[in-house]
Amino acid sequence: MKSKLSAESNYDVLELSGEIDLHYSPQLREMILGSLKNGNSLLINMAEVSYIDSSGIASLVEGFQTAKTANLSYGLLTISSPALEVLTLTRLDRVFTLYDTIEQFQSQL
């Protein structure tokens, strides 16, 4: 997994790529919760994610729950087809807010 966290004026963007599995999900969890802990809304770009297992999905879910409790915006951007298949299998495509463009996310802030 490769990741890049960047700060916009009123939200953070986390760009993910490659494979997210048991070895990388603790790192993903730390980044997501760290960003939310600082009071920032978070947009996670998943366009380049080639594989995500359930530990990675669990990190995304925990982030979503944390954001909800803290009343922060939290969304997934341009999800790659392999990642979307896993979200669909786990029925989480109905839970997360999925965005096609950054502008859609910005309009929710």
Binding site: L22, P26, S54, S55, E62, R91
Partner: peptide, 19 residues
């Protein structure tokens, strides 16, 4: 076999139970 956080373990388990 892992040192995953308790929250992650709980969510992973529920994902698999739901599946």
């Amino acid at each position: 076999h892992t040192k995953l956080d308790e929250n992650t373990i709980q969510i992973m388990t529920r994902i698999k139970l739901d599946m």
